[in-house]
Computed example of a mutant assay.
Amino acid sequence: MSEISSVDNVLSGLNIDKKKEQAEPSQELGQSAFLELMITQMENQSPLDPQDNTQFIAQLAQFSSVESLDKLNKQFDSFSSNFVANQALQASSLVGRSVTVPATQTGLSSGGIVSLSSHVPASTGDLSLNIYNESGSLVEQLSLGAQPEGEVLLRWDGMSMELNGKLLDWRSSKENGQPPGTYSFELSATNDGQQTALETALSANVNSVTVAQDGSLALNLAGIGTVNLADVKQFNE
């Protein structure tokens, strides 16, 4: 077994590709090569018109600056790669968890709950919610009554509805509630007979995490699709 390993090592050493790699010199001008070039330049300068010492010092300073910037760039690239890898590792722990993002539709899983949050810019005489199924049909319509200015939080399980932690006296129009699927939500406030649509943020389960070419992270959410990690408003328990 050791003899075979020795033969493999010899053949590996004779590998043509490796010989090419060894034969191809580096095209980069290193510090020693630069110093040799500068010394050669000094030895071969005209004694009648010698180069000013300040010019050599300027060349050294310029080379030193370029070399320092190159090292800094390499260190930053390494730091950036490690940061993205660490961020991706942390984001992978979100798979299977629920997050809240700005959206108008999301998925309702079996036995799951959809959380909807919104900001009411001014007190309203009536806050209403319409829920549509995947085909666009209106399946639930609910009047939430007068609401003051501020944040509202709704929780819907397909059968019952909570508003700001209080269970509403309302049941689904279906005997067994709405089935699992993708639903769209429209929240609107009515003042002086004028209805205004409100922006909503919905909860969704994280199915997977994607790392883009630019290093940014995207979450693939059930019923919503791909959302940038920076757009997440809340990480739910």
Rank of each mutant, 00 (worst) to 15 (best):
N207T: 13
L221M: 11
F56W: 07
S93W: 10
F185I: 10
Q45F: 05
E186N: 12
A212I: 01
N9L: 14
S92P: 02
E134H: 05
E21A: 05
L69E: 09
E140Q: 07
N9E: 14
S110L: 07
T54C: 01
D70Q: 14
S12M: 05
V99R: 12
N73I: 12
E43Q: 11
E24T: 11
V227P: 13
G165T: 08
S216M: 02
L14M: 11
L129G: 02
A204M: 04
L116T: 12
E237H: 11
S5F: 00
R155P: 02
L219A: 06
D192E: 12
G225P: 12
L153G: 05
I39T: 11
S64A: 15
G193Y: 00
N228R: 13
D70I: 07
S46Q: 03
G125W: 03
Q87L: 03
M42N: 06
E36M: 08
E237C: 09
S135Y: 04
E24F: 02
T100V: 15
F79D: 00
S216H: 05
S93Q: 14
Q62D: 07
S81E: 14
V66A: 15
S203E: 05
E67C: 03
S46V: 01
N53I: 10
P25I: 10
E21R: 09
I131W: 00
S135E: 00
D17H: 06
Q147G: 02
L37Q: 15
F79N: 05
L221R: 09
A201F: 03
Q59I: 01
T106D: 05
N228M: 05
L153I: 07
N15Y: 03
G145M: 01
A88M: 06
V211L: 11
L60E: 01
S109A: 14
E162H: 15
V99S: 11
Q22C: 00
L202V: 11
N9C: 05
S135I: 01
N176L: 14
N53L: 05
G215R: 03
I113V: 06
V66Q: 14
M1V: 09
S78E: 03
F79I: 05
L72K: 13
Q178S: 14
L138E: 00
I224E: 02
K20A: 05
R171N: 03
A88P: 04
K166N: 15
P121E: 00
S32Y: 00
Q194L: 10
M1K: 11
A58K: 13
D77I: 07
M1D: 11
L168N: 07
A230Q: 03
N164E: 00
L37R: 10
L187T: 09
Q55C: 01
A212Q: 09
F76W: 04
T40N: 08
L14I: 04
G30P: 02
P50E: 00
V99W: 02
R97P: 06
V211Y: 06
T200H: 08
G165F: 01
W156N: 06
D77Q: 12
N220T: 12
K174G: 02
D49A: 10
D126R: 06
L229I: 13
V206I: 06
K174N: 10
N191H: 07
K20E: 00
Q75F: 04
I4R: 14
V7T: 15
S109T: 14
D77V: 10
K174A: 11
